[in-house]
Design a protein around this nucleic acid. Structure first.
Lengths: 238, 238
DNA sequence: GCAATTTGGTTGTATATACAAGTTGATGGT
DNA sequence: ACCATCAACTTGTATATACAACCAAATTGC
């Protein structure tokens, strides 16, 4: 068997969800309906539903049916906090200042991280995120233009890069490192630090189905920001 | 059916693994053997094996058999790096210096984190972890004596608290926050920092089946240490 | 001795069937 | 109008069966 039948059904259902044909919380075909549509036994259709449920794509209720789960928890493992949501969750005012949004020749380090070649065009954005008009985070982000061709046409005062990228290239994987650094003058200036202080720098590389999407450096003053919640460490440190 | 048969088989297998009857990488009964032992069909026995495999408890190879997975990945979601392993993985020499290991009255903050009452007895350890004799991390840890009554009797030059706790009270949950801080004089002294520099402080609260087990403050110089790999953020920041 | 083949055991996929357990809505009767 | 019952449908569990894919060791042929 070239590819298993239950896998075909999964692929079909995933595509329906991705293109929006089956929106969040909408009902998906029952085991019996899928079995008939795909000319398989109920147990095979069931397996597809089952595995999608285990992946957090669907939720099911005995006696009721199967439904598309909320996208945000499409993969709870990959849930990444969006700083705008964080700020608003605290009841504070979120705003952003776009400092730069251009295409530039790709530096070597970025190229290897994004699977590009040196001096290939790459998109770059530089944004300050503010909480109650106080700078909270400086975001420097490189974006793979092959994955997100319209990146530079976006209005990032309306939505954060993270929000936009989540729509265009849904996350399949994310890689992070966290460092404590001494900010350079440029960073100090944009974070409005009267004097230098320890900063937390989160380096985040995100992947979608097609490969690496973006590499972001998120720098926050230690006095104003900390990472929290459940962090899980699963790969070796450097 | 009071409890599903496949669940009974899972419980049995888990208990065998937990008591050590089935060590790591040892072979477990095949689908057919389990089916016969429990008087169920092969498909039911298969389900037990399958689910344990999805949980990372077992690994299976077609044509060969099913085996107990390495304990460290017993729950990949909760895999927490042990600094001794990290250092040794880099091919460097790991050592530790035990500065303090006592019982003391529980401070208020610690009490609420561990589910104790203020001034209840709590264990406290203070350890410096060294890489090639250079201090890499200062570990201050409070341990719930109800969960780990023999904590103060351990020899932590032989194994790290993390290793010991993993044996006594296997992790079911972990909560972290990461901050960039300015180290105090005490920390500077024990990390042998000639002058103060930004430090990464990881606060880690671990839970076992019975509840909160320990609260650890892990402080490392930014120049010598960074957190890396796949970090997943699933709960709100402060 | 060595290589090719066979054999037996294992996991992987798929089917047809049966019944249990839960939800919902319709159909009643009071 | 209200409640109880029932019918239809859903997911959950379990079985018996069949064949495919794969691996390791034994057997066979040379």
């Amino acid at each position: 068997m070239a590819v298993a039948k239950f896998a075909e059904i999964k692929e079909f259902m995933l595509s329906q969800i991705e293109i929006g044909a089956w929106p969040e919380h909408s009902r998906v075909p029952s085991e019996n309906e899928l079995a008939e549509q795909f000319s398989v036994s109920r147990m095979t259709a069931r397996r597809a539903l089952q595995e999608l449920t285990e992946q957090g794509i669907l939720y099911r209720t005995q006696g009721v049916g199967s439904f598309v789960a909320a996208l945000k928890s499409q993969s709870s493992l990959l849930e990444i906090r969006n700083i705008a949501d964080e700020v608003q969750a605290r009841g504070h005012a979120y705003s952003a200042r776009l400092l730069q949004l251009t295409e530039l020749p790709c530096p070597t380090i970025i190229a290897s991280a994004l699977g590009l070649r040196r001096n290939d065009p790459v998109f770059f954005s530089l944004i300050v995120h503010l909480e109650n008009n106080l700078p909270l985070q400086l975001e420097a982000r490189y974006v793979n233009p092959l994955q997100v061709p319209n990146y530079t046409a976006q209005d990032f005062s309306y939505q954060t890069p993270h929000q936009y990228l989540s729509l265009i290239a849904p996350l399949t994987e994310a890689e992070h490192t966290v460092e404590a650094i001494w900010p350079d003058d440029f960073t100090c200036k944009h974070l409005v630090l009267k004097k230098a202080e320890p900063c937390l720098r989160l380096t985040r590389r995100t992947f979608s189905r097609g490969g690496a999407v973006s590499l972001a450096y998120l720098t926050s003053p230690g006095s104003r920001y900390r990472l929290g919640g459940h962090l899980n460490f699963s790969l070796p440190n450097i």
